[in-house]
Write a protein that binds this DNA or RNA. Structure first.
Lengths: 211, 211
DNA sequence: AGCTGTGAACATATTCACAGCC
DNA sequence: GGCTGTGAATATGTTCACAGCT
């Protein structure tokens, strides 16, 4: 077993590791081992893809048996960098921001809410999921002091770029953007975009073609 | 101009068409034409990819000039099947379901909320975004009567598969799943999954590697 | 016998580079 | 001159098929 894994994992595989983790965690505690066949069924993939993906983590399966479920969970978490909870800030306390803050799964997924911010003075001071909403002006100092690297943007589209610029200047290097706007970010800042309209429109394409 | 476009558009391109649409719509009304270079900058892509993607829609650009912005919007909408608003049902009135229902962009994106459903009697009858929450028991009849094809699932993970089975039995063929569970769906049902934990975990991978 | 790990074959997606047209 | 449209080249991702280990 190598001390450090120097294999670069393909993007497509990285994007599936959380899926494997979710499937493994949803299995009954009694299941000690799991085969690529079983995992593939749970994840709606084929077994060869599962094996190839897992092979990038190193050789953790046993031929003739399968993978040790809990050990595999740990390997995936380690590979994803989920060793200790990442503190995350949420910016924008609208419907969506509140909903995400109230989502109870942050801890289990490997994250903790470090702060919730809004620019609207009427929202500052209100409580969302046990967190007192802070003024957006406070954010840069907090991010620097607590060495926070990740942020979730749930502001209206018009404010998203401006918010991102402030976040990046404060040292944030990973952004999950729920605002319906494309963010311009410099090299070294990873940004993912989740958009309801986009998802529905992709479904619409395939829907229109089968109807 | 061909009456019908018989080119099959690659999945990767389909997934970017909504992005182009968003960028084109975010441009100033005064912009009559747009070059692949400009559109690429707005979408964070390179011009060659933009041109190849748009070429699958047919030849709508003018050499030396660019694309007519509004005409291109229409072409993309037509290709995505966004000719008249698709009625969509939302199942699950938790924080996220309410947040999505209150998202004002359904109409502009090409969709309309046809109904909001929950299995909890305490929620049935309450009003969310001007829609009275219906009992989940009513859903199959409504879906059939109104010929609804698309659904959004925002239930807890434990209920998602059961809800999906009912939706599919009622005739739904496109599902956008926000519940943290992998859905098993038959051939002919298109399903997309949006998951907060997954997105954060993917970011975590790259974050851990640059820190 | 059963299941992993992986090279090789295949499929899809991206980028280049330039001909073609306005 | 400038920008599109696209074949060819490259890169990435998926699947097959089987050797190799338990």
């Amino acid at each position: 077993m190598p001390l450090v894994n120097h294999v670069t994992i393909p993007k497509a595989t990285v994007a599936r590791l959380p899926l494997y983790l979710q499937c493994l965690q949803s299995m009954a505690d009694a299941e000690i081992t799991v085969s690529s066949e079983t995992l593939a069924q749970l994840a709606n993939l084929n077994p060869a893809k599962v094996r190839k993906d897992l092979s990038y983590l190193g050789s953790h399966g046993v031929r003739g048996v399968g993978y040790d479920r809990l050990h595999l969970c740990l390997q995936i978490k380690r590979e994803l960098g989920l060793v200790e909870a990442w503190p995350v800030v949420i910016v924008g306390v609208g419907n969506l921001g509140s909903a995400l803050a109230n989502y109870g799964g942050f801890g289990a997924a490997g994250f903790s809410i470090a702060g919730i911010y809004d620019a609207d003075p009427k929202k500052v001071g209100t409580v969302v999921d046990e967190h007192v909403v802070q003024s957006f002006d406070e954010l840069p100092a907090d991010v620097r002091r607590k060495k926070i690297a990740m942020a979730i943007i749930t502001t209206p589209a018009g404010a998203a770029q401006e918010v991102a610029d402030v976040l990046i200047a404060a040292g944030i290097t990973s952004i999950l953007n729920f605002a319906p706007a494309v963010l311009q970010t410099p090299e070294g800042v990873e940004c993912r975009h989740v958009d309801l309209a986009t998802e529905l429109q992709i479904l619409s394409y395939y829907q229109a073609r089968q109807a």
